[in-house]
Amino acid sequence: MPTANIAGRDIALNDEGFMTEPTQWTEEIGTFLARQIGIDPLTEEHWKVIRFLRSDFDAQGETATLRRVSTVAGIGTKDLYTLFPGKPARKMAYVSGLPKPKGCV
């Protein structure tokens, strides 16, 4: 299992670079990860999404899907594509230190 030294801490990552220990995450690490994928700076809109993802993961044990973010947090899918361009579901999870959302079979 690879680790990386981020903000002075050893952080566990999987081979795709996603954090494997969500409890290791801090806002500082989130900012660092966002910069890795070209999102800089993180605006208040970004943080709103990240905070929802973090608290929803604590409650549900799973990373919220785009639809869940739009229905439960009220942040539209179009906006999520603007904030996290390309593959928003993966990018949101990556920055928030969570596993990428499972598309159920």
Binding site: R90, K102, G103, V105
Partner: peptide, 9 residues
Amino acid sequence: TPMSEVFTK
């Protein structure tokens, strides 16, 4: 498909 692969597994 909205997924990155043709099947999830």
